[in-house]
Simulated assay, not measured.
Amino acid sequence: MDEPTGFSASHDHTNCKAELALRVIQGRWKLLVLRELMEGVQRFSALQRALPGVSQKVLTAQLRELEANGVVQRTAYPEVPPRVEYGLTALGRELIPVLEGLHAWGQQVAEAAAPETG
């Protein structure tokens, strides 16, 4: 079977672009944050409500990492009380088909692992 272009089992992992991409989105909450931001710009409190179980500290850290990697944009408005919104950057929006593909693949895995009834 042919290897996909640019990726093989003998590939030099120190320069693997797939590994770099995975490092950008790895983390317990990052994919879920990205899923929420695919729906549009969100305030911090809306993200926290959409992700029960995530602490403020962890969500802040995950958002900062995504921002540092150019995937998420943070916009702070000079208002009282302060308003901060998060949205996907152009680079982040390029992840949408990748995330949709992961979802579809996960669905196939779940269906394959489900016990047959009947």
Rank of each mutant, 00 (worst) to 15 (best):
98 V>W: 06
80 V>E: 02
77 Y>I: 05
77 Y>L: 08
97 P>L: 09
100 E>W: 11
83 R>P: 00
82 P>L: 04
74 R>M: 11
71 V>M: 11
75 T>F: 04
86 Y>Q: 08
84 V>G: 02
97 P>Q: 15
84 V>E: 09
92 G>H: 11
83 R>L: 12
88 L>D: 03
88 L>F: 04
101 G>C: 11
71 V>N: 06
101 G>P: 09
79 E>W: 00
89 T>R: 14
73 Q>D: 05
84 V>K: 05
95 L>I: 08
94 E>R: 12
78 P>H: 01
92 G>W: 14
80 V>L: 01
81 P>V: 12
81 P>Y: 10
93 R>A: 06
81 P>E: 12
98 V>Q: 03
88 L>Q: 06
87 G>S: 13
93 R>K: 10
90 A>W: 03
89 T>H: 10
101 G>N: 11
98 V>K: 06
88 L>N: 06
95 L>F: 10
100 E>H: 11
90 A>K: 08
88 L>V: 04
99 L>V: 11
72 V>C: 00
78 P>Y: 00
82 P>D: 07
89 T>E: 10
88 L>S: 06
85 E>G: 08
93 R>T: 02
95 L>V: 07
89 T>G: 15
93 R>I: 02
86 Y>I: 00
92 G>S: 11
95 L>Q: 05
94 E>I: 00
100 E>C: 13
88 L>R: 10
86 Y>M: 03
71 V>T: 11
85 E>L: 09
76 A>G: 12
85 E>I: 03
82 P>E: 14
96 I>H: 03
101 G>A: 13
80 V>T: 05
89 T>S: 12
96 I>Q: 07
90 A>E: 12
73 Q>S: 08
76 A>I: 08
79 E>C: 02
75 T>Y: 04
97 P>G: 15
92 G>C: 08
79 E>P: 01
79 E>L: 04
73 Q>V: 13
88 L>H: 08
72 V>G: 02
97 P>K: 13
87 G>Q: 10
101 G>M: 15
74 R>T: 02
80 V>G: 00
82 P>W: 03
93 R>V: 01
81 P>D: 15
98 V>A: 06
84 V>S: 04
92 G>L: 08
101 G>L: 13
85 E>F: 15
81 P>C: 12
74 R>L: 10
94 E>V: 01
90 A>T: 09
73 Q>W: 04
77 Y>T: 15
71 V>H: 07
81 P>A: 09
89 T>F: 06
84 V>T: 11
82 P>V: 05
98 V>I: 14
89 T>N: 10
90 A>P: 03
97 P>Y: 11
75 T>P: 02
94 E>C: 09
89 T>M: 08
95 L>K: 09
100 E>P: 08
81 P>W: 14
85 E>Y: 07
88 L>I: 07
75 T>N: 14
85 E>K: 13
99 L>Q: 09
85 E>M: 11
98 V>P: 03
91 L>G: 14
92 G>K: 13
73 Q>K: 09
97 P>E: 14
96 I>V: 06
101 G>F: 13
95 L>H: 05
83 R>I: 12
87 G>F: 00
